[in-house]
């Protein structure tokens, strides 16, 4: 008998013949009057920041706010202020020294300041974690209240990778002192356009 069989057999032997129904997950949940404001405070509380760009000029925003950075890469085609192609290297290790990664997210979640990143245009997911700073572009109409609505917008019919990112990486493993910038980005800005 393989281990697979022996595990499954032991489970079958030990469980009852019936079970309770699987419940609905879309319960009544928080609805925020001002989703933008809630998103902003949620994100600020985890060390990130949210900006609404009135004129939609991302290049200008980057030039103004990230002027001193050397290596800037982007997964968005419209952005021209980058100086490397993130998809060009054949190994993710080449992205080691990226100073700023400009990436796209599908939507933001007001209750926790997270954004859903599942970008098939991006060759190396390591980019999200190797870059020192992260600038995340989200359509300003795409903010949901809670994770209930968030999961209504997500599917994994095909193989792939997707992640909710909420602020920069952080740790509190030393005496519960919050330190922003653990292994991943040390700053994360969500830009609504």
């Amino acid at each position: 008998m393989t281990s697979r069989e022996s595990i499954l057999n032991n489970i079958k032997k030990n469980i009852p013949s019936s079970t309770i129904e699987l419940p609905q997950t879309n319960i009544a949940h928080a609805i925020y009057k001002d989703k933008n404001e809630k998103f902003k405070t949620s994100l600020a509380s985890v060390g990130g920041n949210a900006v609404w760009l009135e004129d939609g000029n991302i290049d200008e925003f980057v030039r103004k706010n990230y002027s001193n950075l050397e290596i800037i890469v982007s997964t968005c085609k419209e952005i021209t202020c980058t100086n490397r192609d993130a998809n060009k290297p054949n190994t993710p290790h080449a992205l080691e020294n990226v100073d700023l990664a400009i990436i796209e997210a599908e939507f933001g979640v007001a209750e926790n300041g997270a954004v859903w990143v599942k970008n098939s245009n991006n060759r190396h997911r390591a980019l999200y974690f190797l870059a020192t700073q992260l600038l995340i572009i989200v359509n300003k109409n795409n903010i949901v209240d809670t994770m209930h609505e968030a999961y209504e917008r997500i599917e994994f019919n095909q193989a792939g990778y997707g992640t909710f990112i909420s602020g920069p990486s952080k740790t509190a493993d030393i005496e519960q002192s919050l330190v922003i910038g653990a292994h991943g980005p040390t700053s994360a800005c969500v830009l609504f356009v």
Partner: peptide, 12 residues
């Protein structure tokens, strides 16, 4: 926290 910094879904 309302959510962890990263909630990553690996399907590949």
């Amino acid at each position: 926290q309302a959510i962890t910094s990263y909630t990553s879904h690996f399907h590949a």
